[in-house]
Design a binder for these strands. Structure first.
Length: 977
DNA sequence: ATTAACGCCTTTTTT
DNA sequence: AGGCGTTAAT
């Protein structure tokens, strides 16, 4: 059978093979969205005979596009994959503009202004105009206007007196960009739109356009999609309105409908089976999202067992919350044998700034972590500085870059000097650079005479830049960035400069510089052997732009840096094979599309989520939904009850997010972490499709735990009376009573401090835990772990089981009722029911009405049945290719599962077509008939490519900061005072 | 008169 | 960690 279609469930199969030219795939979390999209790309190539360079595939994040490439490489082979036009909207636009931008009067070698650049420009403008407007606000508003295609003039026409100020700033901003030959993020999209409108021949080769995460498109991107597909009007989009979390970036869910109106022949396929999360996680996430009544109802069907109820934990303070996560992670790792490792945990945050406390606690406890989101590699000052040198060399008109390096390292050029220079440049209306050069050469002069020292400083700067530009001219290949970097760092004695300015952290800083050089090197190497990946196909009759190879390489390097704010490579390599397993700490936004076995979502209180500055509450709810649906087996939400108030006075108390009303929390959450006895652990293993740990393993690490329970704080979030004394010394000390405007963590000593509490165990060295024998649970540990019946001691467990069992029938009835509702309202939502396929939802789930006596066991039956049914699909399905280690345990696992398996539980899932007859029934096969290329030959090639490709699974865990944030902080703070 | 250094404040989310 | 205002040093 067709390997492309192998392992697709019927709905996915239908989406992949749909002959419809305009196709919308609605894919809720964990439904195999990326798998479906990649399979569709492969299918279009093989069955429709499209050439890869004629297929455009747009994603929103770099991470997503990388993952697409990786998966497609496996499916269709590296060679074909590399010829696809695949990338973020922004990077695809850049490619078109580089090649054809001259057609709309774009100057060669334009640069890209990242948001820091934009801010710098705006800061200057706002200062000059004496406007009191906040930079960030101006930035946001301008961007929004741009995203709606509103030029300064157009905006001026709809003046409100209040807006007028913005119009001026906007206008200035645009001309500043133009003067420096820069395009900002919005411009990339806008100008590309202009290009394609005026010269549609540039995309006359395009056969099909595919868009991932369509709910995140803004109007411009939507237009762009249509323009790209103008020739053949074949569009596939994948998306989920429930996961729209980029409204702040002008994304419009409306585009789904807009698209249907525009193309009356739009087909819609719904994916509803969730392969990621346990049933209980899914149910509670559903409860959250369904509070949005404007949203069309939509059912998500779990394929896993009900599992362990999610936790909603109350803690006294934010520090306690962080501390609790530490304990809970340790408890889980220890008590599940080797089932869970550090990399299986994620902490997802509404805002990056919440991470500091958590980083502190993790650092102290020796838990390795990795912060994703927030500041990135290319944002680090020393890296930025060097990049700005490169930008000036690449384009001397780049005034902002010039200003940012003019006195770095210090050249005795201060504010006054700069004022003279910029003033002069403006007076003669020449670029700043030209004016400076003229002043140095004596053919122009400033109003006030410059200081000798400043003049000398300027002189050395000019020399350096001029020499570098000469070098660039002499260098006619892709090594230009590297050569220039070497030249510049050397001439500046950059290393000495770093040592001087950052005496505490100098090797870290220098390492970053070296890293940057490594990037430049790699870019050069990449350029040599596969220039394809970044190339657009040539189109007959349309001239492309020619340029100097070295310059070209340099501006490409800079553009990639601006767009790929993210480090793919290295890093992991540096730390070698023993790359440490790390907990992921990430913003929710950056976590989209990813999954982890265990997910913590701290700070679920009003003001954080929904965020106090949020404009649209619904979006905040969706954010919580996205966070919750990242979890596979265990989900923890938590909040501190008190929050230190800024400024004076006592802590204020927090209130739980309104997205978790009492009715939901009572039934769908437990107040503390679950007991981790055998059954629970096995259920986790099964959901993760990993081998169940042995009893020995589960017992082994136990002695390192202070407690087998989540009982350091009461369920109400109070300090436990007897535990309090032990904890006081290491817990809140730095934080209390009020953080008197000092950083909460300033009290920590240098890294040599051991956080030894009087009771004798240290958090900084987990292996040395000495366990106070008075703590509960140890004498009978083995007994405890293996007991299959819930000990009467724990209150949550029996009652939980009970409620869960009791709920089951009720739930199923709502489910089936909703199923009907679902279809109706969705067709409502999408209008014109005739135009679309009937939903191919494989499972009508006609009702799971039988009585469940034991949740775990019972759902496990259910589970195994499902797994059996979908076994082939699970292989690729929701595994987001994150952890290379996950593929290994699958083999032995399967047999274990088989053994524990009983009869299929028929009702929930009709004995489904396994791969043999998947979808052949309900899917019209016209597409196959239309297929141009011989299917079978294609597949042989495909397969051989797949197998010859080594399992060089590059880790894709996204943005990484090369240094462990904790170490950096320790270092800084230990010497900082 | 300029520059460099220190302290204080703030931080939504991303291409 | 960056931006801002104030103060110390040149």
């Amino acid at each position: 059978m067709d390997p492309i279609l192998d392992g697709l469930n019927p709905a996915q199969h239908q989406a992949v093979t749909s002959p419809a030219p305009i196709l919308q795939v609605l894919a809720p979390p964990g439904s195999g969205k990326t798998k479906t999209l990649t399979a569709r790309v492969a299918y279009l190539l093989s069955h429709h005979g499209y050439q890869p360079q004629d297929v455009i595939c747009c994603t929103f994040t770099i991470k997503a596009s990388r993952e697409m490439r990786e998966r497609l490489g496996k499916l269709i082979g590296q060679r074909l994959q590399s010829r696809l036009i695949l990338g973020t909207f922004h990077s695809i636009c850049r490619r078109y503009l580089v090649k054809y931008g001259y057609l709309i009067g774009l100057r060669r070698g334009f640069g890209i202004a990242d948001s820091d650049d934009s801010r710098a420009i705006l800061r200057r403008i706002i200062k000059r105009l004496n406007s009191g407007m906040e930079i960030r606000a101006a930035q946001g508003r301008i961007s929004r206007h741009k995203a709606h295609g509103l030029s300064p003039d157009a905006l001026a026409e709809r003046v409100k007196a209040e807006e007028l100020e913005l119009v001026d700033i906007y206008r200035e901003y645009e001309s500043a960009l133009a003067a420096s030959n820069l395009l900002d993020y919005d411009d990339l999209l806008l100008r590309c739109g202009d290009l394609l409108r005026e010269h549609p021949e540039c995309v006359s080769n395009v056969q099909a356009v595919l868009v991932d995460e369509f709910q995140d498109t803004n109007v411009i991107q939507y237009d762009l999609m249509n323009l790209l597909a103008a020739k053949n009007r074949r569009i596939t989009i994948v998306g989920d309105p429930d996961q729209s979390i980029y409204g702040f970036r002008s994304a419009e869910i409306q585009n789904l409908r807009r698209m249907q109106r525009r193309y009356s022949n739009t087909s819609v396929v719904l994916l509803e089976d969730n392969y990621r999360s346990s049933g209980s996680i899914l149910t509670s996430a559903q409860e959250v999202i369904e509070q949005d009544t404007t949203r069309p109802a939509k059912k998500l069907q779990p394929t896993h067992s009900y599992g362990t109820l999610p936790v909603l934990r109350k803690l006294p303070t934010a520090n306690a919350e962080a501390q609790w996560m530490v304990l809970e992670i340790k408890r889980l790792v220890a008590m599940t044998g080797s089932l869970l490792r550090m990399s299986d945990f994620a902490v997802l945050l509404r805002s990056a700034s919440l991470s500091t406390r958590i980083e502190t606690a993790f650092g102290r406890a020796g838990i390795p972590y990795n912060m994703v989101g927030g500041r990135k590699f290319f944002d680090r000052t020393e890296v930025k500085t060097l990049l700005n040198y490169l930008r000036v060399v690449s384009h001397t008109g780049h005034t902002d870059a010039l200003l940012s390096i003019i006195n770095v390292p210090p050249r005795r050029i201060g504010d006054e000097t700069i004022k003279q220079l910029t003033g002069g440049a403006e007076k003669y209306s020449v670029p700043l650079w030209t004016f400076i050069k003229d002043v140095i050469q004596g053919c122009r002069s400033t109003e006030k005479k410059l200081q000798k020292a400043a003049e000398l400083g300027l002189c050395s700067l000019v020399k350096l830049i001029e020499a570098s530009r000469q070098k660039l001219q002499d260098c006619c290949d892709a090594s230009a960035p590297r050569i220039l970097l070497e030249h510049i760092t050397e001439s500046l004695s950059f290393q000495e400069y770093l040592i001087r300015t950052y005496p505490l952290d100098e090797d870290g800083r220098w390492a970053n510089v070296k890293e940057l050089m490594g990037q430049a090197n790699e870019a050069a190497a990449n350029d040599e052997d596969n220039s394809e990946q970044d190339e657009l196909p040539d189109i007959e009759g349309v001239e492309q732009q020619q340029s100097h190879a070295g310059e070209e390489a340099l501006s490409r390097f800079l553009a990639n840096v601006a767009l790929a704010t993210d480090l793919t490579t290295q890093e992991e390599g540096q730390e070698g094979e023993k790359a440490l397993e790390k907990v992921t700490i990430s913003t929710i936004h950056a976590a989209k599309g990813l999954e982890w076995p265990v997910v913590f979502v701290p700070a679920v209180y009003n003001g954080i989520i929904p965020h106090s500055r949020a404009e649209v509450v619904d979006e905040e709810r969706r954010l919580l939904y996205v966070a919750m649906t990242r979890a596979q087996a265990l989900l923890y939400l938590s909040l501190p009850l008190r929050q230190p108030r800024i400024g004076e006075g006592e802590d204020s108390s927090t209130s739980l997010t309104p997205f978790l009303p009492g009715k939901v929390t009572k039934t769908r959450f437990r107040p503390t972490g679950p007991r981790l006895h055998e059954k629970v652990v096995y259920a986790i293993a099964d959901i993760l499709r990993r081998p169940r740990p042995s009893e020995e393993d589960m017992l082994k690490a136990l002695s390192s735990l202070p407690s087998t329970l989540d009982d350091h704080w009461t369920a109400e979030g109070e300090e436990q009376r007897d535990a309090a004394t032990k904890w006081e010394s290491l817990n809140d000390a730095p934080n209390e009573p009020y953080p008197k405007r000092r950083r909460p963590d300033t009290n920590q000593g240098p890294s040599t401090t051991t956080f030894v509490s009087s009771t004798g165990y240290t958090m900084s060295n987990p292996s040395q835990f000495t366990v106070p024998t008075t703590l509960s649970g140890f004498q009978s540990a083995r007994h405890y772990i293996t007991t299959s019946t819930d000990p009467p001691a724990e209150s949550a467990s029996p009652s939980t089981a009970e409620t869960e069992a009791a709920r089951q029938p009720k739930q199923s009835s709502t489910a089936s009722r909703k199923d009907g509702l679902t279809q109706a309202s969705i067709s409502n939502f999408f209008g014109d029911p005739e135009a679309r396929h009937k939903s191919a939802s494989p499972s009508q789930h006609s009702g799971r009405s039988h009585k469940h006596s034991d949740t775990t066991m019972n759902s496990q039956h259910h589970n195994t049945c499902v797994q059996q049914r979908t076994a082939p699909s699970l292989r690729h399905c929701p595994r987001t290719a994150l952890r290379p280690d996950q593929s290994s345990p699958r083999g032995p696992m399967k047999s274990a599962r088989m053994m524990s398996m009983t009869q299929a539980s028929h009702e929930s899932h009709p004995p489904a077509p396994a791969k043999a007859d998947t979808g052949s029934g309900e899917v019209k096969q016209e597409s196959a008939a239309r297929g141009v290329q011989s299917v079978s030959t294609f597949h042989t090639t495909t397969m051989s490519m797949v197998s010859q490709q080594p399992a060089s699974g590059r880790r894709t865990l996204g943005i990484r900061r090369s240094m462990n944030g904790w170490e950096a902080r320790m270092k800084r703070e230990s010497g900082g005072r």
